[in-house]
Amino acid sequence: MTGQRPGRDRDEEGRARNARPRDGLGRPLPYGTAGVERAPEGLHRTPEQTLAEAQELLDAGMPFHAHEVLEDAWKLAPEPERALWRGLAQLAVGHTHCLRGNVRGAQALLTRAADVLAEQPAPGPHGVDVAGLVAWARELSAALPGGVPTDLSAPVLRRR
């Protein structure tokens, strides 16, 4: 195939896919290293399955992997729900940046997520705690200039 770099990781359909193992925060590890199992991409999950799986990953300190699950929902959702799933995916990426110590990236993504989620009706579709997530993202973003809080907890997608 012309235009492809030699040795570039590809999936079965020939699309570029990084096959490097990743750690719990999604950072690439050297080939041959044991990494954290990644969530399969492109799965058709119900909203309930998506939210449950993403919450499990968030609670386990793996927001990058939760983002991948939420991104699938964003890509596959009907148009009226895409903004909700995009906001949730951005929230998970903001949390990832936070845990990686990237304050600037965390603030940008958390603010973007809060802005998107604030446009959603409350209560949110599928029981998503839109108001709680907006507050969580805004409070965390405002606290970040002082450093990442040591008592940082995962966002709660739905009230338990």
Rank of each mutant, 00 (worst) to 15 (best):
G146Y: 07
G147Y: 09
L51P: 08
R5Y: 14
A135H: 11
A52I: 11
P47N: 10
P28M: 04
E56L: 11
E79Y: 04
R15C: 09
A131K: 12
L25A: 06
R27S: 12
A77F: 07
A34T: 13
T33W: 03
V103L: 05
A108Y: 06
R112D: 14
E68H: 09
R112P: 01
R5N: 09
R38K: 13
D9F: 11
R27T: 11
Q107V: 05
A16T: 15
E56V: 14
E68Q: 02
W85G: 03
D129T: 07
R15I: 06
R86Y: 01
T96H: 00
A106G: 10
E139P: 02
A16D: 11
P155G: 13
P40E: 15
E13N: 09
V69M: 01
G24K: 08
A19T: 11
A118D: 12
A54E: 04
D23C: 00
P6L: 15
L152R: 14
P63A: 11
A54S: 05
H65W: 11
D72K: 05
D72E: 09
L57P: 03
E71T: 03
N102G: 00
G105Q: 00
G7E: 14
V128T: 07
G94M: 03
T2Q: 15
H65L: 05
Q49A: 15
R138W: 12
L152D: 04
D129H: 00
L140R: 10
R160Q: 12
Q49E: 15
M62V: 00
G35C: 05
E53Y: 05
M1H: 06
E53G: 10
A92F: 05
V103H: 04
W85I: 01
A142V: 09
R38G: 06
L25S: 02
G132H: 12
R38Q: 14
E119L: 04
G7M: 12
L110F: 10
Q49G: 04
R27Q: 06
A77C: 10
P80K: 00
E139M: 03
V116R: 09
H95D: 14
G32N: 04
G42M: 08
P21N: 08
A54L: 03
